[in-house]
Simulated scan of single mutants.
Amino acid sequence: MSVVIVIPARHASTRYPGKPLVELRGASGQGRSLIRRSWEAACAARGIDRVIVATDDARIRDHAEGFGAEVAMTSTGARNGTERCAEAVANLGLAPEIVVNLQGDAPLTPAWFVEDLVAGLRADPGADVATPVLQCTGAMRSDLIADRVAGRVGGTTAVFGHDRRALYFSKEVIPHAGAEFGPSDPTPVFHHVGVYAYRPAPLAEYPTWDEGRLETLEGLEQLRFLERGRRILCVEVEARGREFWELNNPSDVPKLEAMMQCMGIA
């Protein structure tokens, strides 16, 4: 039984061109690229048999191979990271038990997020896909709301049922909660962490489906699974004192660097 992590990375990002090669400075003061930090995060997870960077860009390929990553070249036709993962797995002729998509803009993803995600999918044979969710504190919820007020597309939120099956994902802050929360208070909002664990069959089918209406409106690739009636398991993970944020916009760079310095991440 094998688990493969694929890190999809493209240079031509609409919101942030060249994002995978952006350098982030941690506590050591030395800069390392976003794609390298994401690869290091993937390599830190236990129980992973292979880590592959999937890209359609020679600059990212050369850079990733330079720090020792395995790289799979994919076409420019992939519409999102899930399609790129599916293409990489198919091109390499892999037949793993589980494919993990660790998107290349989440360098602060703790290893246990990935480990808990894989364990969650294994424990629920009825799920096609699993993805982590992190309960927001009042401060995290305020940051998400601030992004929306400023017109920035920031983090994604998730809502799910009592069985932890996903009901919806949105770039808006949902569910609505009129109450005020203190910075460290738990809230009913769950931040969706941009990692996915797929069973091979639904992953292989995914690129053959047309983009869904909700997927197009929200710009969220996972909604294609929901629109096709596939089951996504939301696996709640714990921060364990770690801060988590994704690099979505140029304004996130100083925020991420401050977090890394605070947490002592070199």
Rank of each mutant, 00 (worst) to 15 (best):
G155Q: 15
T109N: 09
P125F: 03
S142I: 03
D128K: 00
V189Y: 07
A119L: 09
E218T: 06
F169E: 01
G212D: 03
L214I: 13
G178C: 10
P183Q: 07
T187Q: 08
E221L: 02
P132I: 00
E215Y: 08
G138S: 11
L121M: 07
R224K: 15
V173L: 07
L203E: 10
A204H: 14
E115M: 02
G212H: 09
G126P: 01
C136R: 05
G151L: 05
L223R: 03
P202L: 02
P207W: 01
R148T: 04
G178M: 14
G151I: 08
G212W: 04
G151K: 10
W112R: 09
G155H: 15
D143L: 14
R224F: 08
E221W: 00
F160V: 05
S170V: 06
G154T: 06
P200R: 00
F181M: 05
A139I: 00
A150G: 07
G154D: 09
A111Q: 07
R199A: 11
E236L: 10
T208Y: 02
E115D: 08
D185H: 13
R141W: 03
T208W: 05
H176Y: 15
Y206P: 00
G194M: 14
G138T: 15
G212Q: 07
L121R: 04
E205V: 03
G161W: 01
Q135F: 10
M140Y: 06
Y198A: 05
R213Y: 07
P175Y: 06
T156Q: 11
A106P: 01
F169Q: 06
T208I: 04
P132G: 11
R231G: 04
V159Q: 13
V149H: 14
G155P: 07
A130P: 05
P107Y: 04
G182L: 13
H191R: 12
D116I: 06
D210K: 14
A179E: 08
P202D: 06
G229I: 11
E221A: 14
Q135D: 09
L108I: 14
R152L: 07
R224D: 04
V195L: 12
A123W: 05
G161T: 05
V193F: 04
P186F: 11
E227D: 11
R224P: 02
A201T: 12
V237T: 11
F113H: 09
E172G: 15
F190N: 03
R228K: 15
H192C: 06
D210V: 03
P132Y: 02
I145L: 12
L220F: 03
E218Q: 15
R199W: 09
D147C: 15
A166K: 00
V189W: 01
D210S: 15
R141T: 04
V114K: 06
S184D: 13
T216F: 06
L223G: 02
D105C: 06
V133C: 05
